[in-house]
Structures are given as C-alpha cells and as structure tokens.
Amino acid sequence: MGGNQHTNPVTDETRADVRRLHAEGHGRNEIARRLARSPRTISVLAAEMGLTFDRTATEEATRARVADLAERRAILAEALQSDAERLTEQLWQPSVIYNFGGKDNTYEYENVPEPPADAKKNLMATAGMAIDRSLKLVPPQDDGGNEAAQSLVGQLMTGLAAVYRQQQAGEQAPPADDEGDGDAP
C-alpha cells in the first residue's frame, strides 16, 4: 500500500456544495467545517471553479489581533518599568543581611541602613534588565534623551562596581561629595 489514497474523494456533489455555500457568503473555513474537508481542499476546489473569498474580514481580524498584542506589550512594558523603579528604590532602603552556617548551622542577621554594595549591584543589574525589556517591547517614539539616560545608568553602574570592588578589597568607600563632578543633570 503506498501513495496518497483519498478515503473521501471529491465528487460533483461536493463541488456543487462548495459553490452553493460560497454563494451564500460562507468563508473558506466555514465551508471546510460544514463539508468535513480541509481548508486547503476547499481553496483548491474554489480556485478550480474560479471562486474567490473575501479577505476583508480576515484582514480586519488580523489588524485587531495586532492591535491587541501591541496593547498587551505596552501593559507588560509598563509593569517592567514599575518593577525597575521598585528595584532602584530598594538601593537606598533599610535592608537585612543574613547568613546561615557555622558548626551549629545558625541563622545570623543584621539590619543595615541600606543594602551592601554587592546587593546594590544585583538590584541595578536586575532593574537594568527590566528597563531593557520594557524598551524592547515598546521602543521610545523619539531618541531624544536616550543617550543621556544610558550614560547616567552607565555612570551609576560604574560607581556601584567601584564601591563593590573596594568593599571586597577591604577598603573604605570614599565619602559622598555633595557637589558631584558636574556630569549629572
């Protein structure tokens, strides 16, 4: 046994049904459902008979789906932006540092005024990822200010990395300078 064998051959009656349903205004998929045929079979039969299907409804449905997806991406981008804002707020909030271990497997913790540098680095990296994803979902309309924002985030990440390296090396972080170096807006 080989080749494609049709268990349900196309008959003149099938062609007549396709022509009648088409004349009644039914679309290809509806005709396929009613005649228990594949949409491809209906398309082939319609083409053989010179029948075409109105694509207006399909095009409108596609435009609606595209608009719905754009709205969902915008909502997700907004949520990611909110996540990034909450993460950056944590940089300067009181925090708890903790550790499990020792021979008695104890839990030790300490409340600190703000997270340590390594935690800040992780918060900034995660916030950066959330911002990046939100921008990919809904890119800004114009590029005005984008370079400045990237520069500011880059400077912040560089500064946090320097503080982290200093803490790892056992050095004291330099005191904050209220005047700044003039780079910030």
Rank of each mutant, 00 (worst) to 15 (best):
residue 92 W to I: 09
residue 15 R to D: 03
residue 110 E to H: 14
residue 69 L to T: 09
residue 57 A to Y: 02
residue 51 L to V: 02
residue 30 E to T: 10
residue 158 T to C: 05
residue 138 V to W: 03
residue 23 A to L: 04
residue 12 D to M: 11
residue 52 T to V: 04
residue 76 L to D: 10
residue 64 A to N: 06
residue 35 L to K: 01
residue 132 D to E: 08
residue 98 Y to H: 15
residue 71 E to H: 06
residue 82 S to R: 13
residue 130 A to P: 00
residue 11 T to P: 00
residue 14 T to H: 03
residue 179 E to L: 13
residue 162 A to S: 15
residue 182 G to N: 11
residue 35 L to F: 12
residue 102 G to Y: 12
residue 60 E to A: 14
residue 185 P to F: 09
residue 79 A to T: 14
residue 185 P to I: 08
residue 141 Q to M: 05
residue 170 G to N: 04
residue 171 E to M: 07
residue 96 V to Y: 04
residue 51 L to I: 08
residue 38 S to N: 01
residue 180 G to C: 14
residue 152 L to C: 15
residue 18 V to A: 00
residue 72 R to V: 12
residue 20 R to L: 13
residue 160 L to K: 10
residue 98 Y to C: 08
residue 93 Q to K: 15
residue 69 L to V: 10
residue 28 R to F: 01
residue 166 Q to T: 03
residue 167 Q to M: 03
residue 7 T to E: 05
residue 156 L to K: 06
residue 185 P to D: 10
residue 6 H to V: 12
residue 169 A to P: 09
residue 168 Q to D: 07
residue 16 A to Y: 01
residue 36 A to G: 13
residue 72 R to N: 07
residue 185 P to L: 15
residue 149 A to P: 02
residue 97 I to R: 12
residue 143 D to R: 12
residue 136 K to E: 07
residue 58 T to C: 09
residue 57 A to N: 04
residue 176 A to L: 06
residue 10 V to Y: 01
residue 52 T to C: 00
residue 79 A to K: 13
residue 168 Q to W: 03
residue 125 A to M: 05
residue 126 T to Y: 07
residue 78 E to P: 02
residue 8 N to F: 14
residue 144 G to V: 04
residue 35 L to E: 01
residue 167 Q to W: 11
residue 156 L to A: 14
residue 125 A to N: 07
residue 37 R to F: 05
residue 52 T to H: 10
residue 11 T to Y: 07
residue 72 R to C: 05
residue 74 A to N: 15
residue 45 L to I: 12
residue 185 P to G: 12
residue 175 P to G: 14
residue 102 G to W: 09
residue 17 D to I: 00
residue 122 N to A: 10
residue 184 A to M: 15
residue 146 N to K: 08
residue 107 Y to M: 06
residue 5 Q to I: 11
residue 163 V to L: 14
residue 177 D to V: 12
residue 10 V to E: 00
residue 148 A to I: 09
residue 79 A to I: 13
residue 33 R to K: 07
residue 102 G to E: 10
residue 173 A to C: 11
residue 125 A to T: 02
residue 50 G to E: 10
residue 11 T to N: 11
residue 108 E to L: 14
